[in-house]
Nucleic acid binder design. Structure first.
Lengths: 217, 217
DNA sequence: CGCACGCTTGAAGCGCGTCAAAAAAGGTGG
DNA sequence: CCACCTTTTTTGACGCGCTTCAAGCGTGCG
């Protein structure tokens, strides 16, 4: 098992991936005032006209889609400071909802799309994030997925001693392609083996960060 | 079960996704001559400097990464006419290899990234493709994944009466997060129930396209 | 208080993975 | 063209990890 560093050499066949992707430090010209969404409130839905995108001021957002029989797949979470809502098509193809009380700053997409290196950077970053997500749910076990998820969440919140999970167990399950029961069981397992501590139901503290990282495939 | 059309209304809670994403009809300024890669040849590897990207002239490309214990996840296949290789970072984070004898046209990324709406379009399309891939492997059964995969491949090759799969069963398995045995069994099942015909091991013909589509969640 | 909601825990089942071996396909040299 | 080998694919038997189904538990709020 290796440390979670970037790829050192091109022949490094089995590296750990750098899951955390730097959050954007970008400012946009045509920005609108912050709008607040209550827990569960819908930000956009499939079929809605795209064109504006959003920067999270506070709170968190989940982006997802439902299958015909009700199965739900969460595509992404977006935390404070992150940007989302840009689409390849003219309309949205997912739902976006506030996971908790959330403030968003709407940003209008430049009319002709030209001269927008910021947006390109965000799009490429979004692609990379989705690809890392595929790595996570494609071939990894439940424990590996949750360990990776917790580390990702911690890193994205600034790597504090402890951090809050803004989303429910069900949201996590639907993000990782698991059931809520499995998520709960893995949390219990990580807790009982001393890797994490649950200060409260949604507040996680890493007791053995290295051990947790070593669980990531 | 609904037809695989785009989202009609914003309250359409459980639509089938438009899996096929239109292939780019884009031409680039600084283009280099076509280079041919043999089956299995490496195009780039993690750690390689990014900056140029590629348009597939003929053949097919797989993009993947390996986990520490050898598990492999294929992130994407790229067929003739499609473009790949752009990255958020300065270096690549995946392997790209020729699935079969493949011709590529290298394209240098504009130095300052400005005024490049084409690249933005490609990045957004790549993001959408990755997101659809997440939908596929996150919550769907083996049969659903393979049905969706076959339909996607058919559409991307122009929707002919029959089409070739350029990649092996193992490649398909690693793309869908399954094992080669499961892929083989599902192919056998689809064949024995008359939904598809295998003209040869890698040549597929849809006998009941609607039935196949109805398998997609 | 008592209901509602989110979370946890237990028991049983099943879909897919694993292991093993045979069959088919493809390539090479005579 | 055939004999021979390698690689890919298929098929079978069995086991495991996760899901499913079903209660229990905790916490917050009317």
């Amino acid at each position: 098992m290796q440390t979670a560093t970037a790829y050192a050499t091109r022949r490094d066949l089995a590296p750990n991936r750098p899951m955390t992707i730097a959050s954007p430090a970008v400012t946009f010209p045509r920005t609108y005032p912050t709008v607040t969404f209550n827990t569960g409130a819908e930000i956009y839905a499939p079929g809605d006209k795209a064109g504006t995108f959003y920067q999270v001021e506070f709170g968190a957002v989940r982006v997802h889609r439902l299958l015909s029989d009700g199965r739900r797949q969460v595509i992404a979470f977006h935390l404070a400071g992150e940007t989302f809502g840009f689409e390849a098509d003219r309309t949205h193809s997912f739902f976006a909802e506030a996971v908790s009380q959330t403030g968003l700053r709407a940003i209008s997409r430049p009319a002709n799309d030209e001269a927008s290196p910021e947006l390109l950077t965000l799009a490429l970053r979004g692609m990379l994030r989705a690809q890392e997500h595929i790595m996570m749910i494609g071939r990894q076990t439940a424990v590996e997925r949750i360990a990776g998820f917790l580390i990702d969440m911690a890193d994205r919140q600034g790597g504090l001693e402890y951090f809050d999970l803004p989303m429910s167990r069900l949201d996590i399950a639907d993000y990782l392609g698991l059931t809520i029961e499995t998520v709960s069981r893995v949390f219990a397992k990580l807790r009982s083996s001393g890797l994490i501590k649950l200060r409260s139901i949604r507040c996680v503290e890493f007791k053995k960060p290295e051990a947790l990282r070593s669980l990531c495939a």
